[in-house]
Amino acid sequence: MSRIHDMGGLHGFGPLEIESDEPAFHHEWEARVFAINRFLLRAGWYTLDEFRDALEQMPPAEYLEASYYERWLFALESLIRRKGVLDVPGR
């Protein structure tokens, strides 16, 4: 059974939107999400596979509604909770 993230070959998503300026991030919070994920991955809180799996756990309807970094935020919140990142006194 494939989940919604398995998009190869799906129909109906329309033409590409190619931006002329292609900013890396469209909102400040997106850069923050990227940075938090990079930080926690490098600190060993979870692996890239776990992050990918967390993204893929997003309910299909929400996944389709969400922007790229909203999906990341969902995965971050879920992993931070599951891994007890906030429970452990750091350093």
């Binding site: 923050r32 938090i36 935020l73 909770r81 906030l86 006194p89 750091g90 350093r91």
Partner: peptide
Amino acid sequence: MSHVHEASGSAANRVKTLVGALEDAHVLT
């Protein structure tokens, strides 16, 4: 951990809350 509310509020606010919680837990600055 109670202050991480999943999928509530705008993404910007959720991220702000998350960073605050991570700072409070001394995970990162």
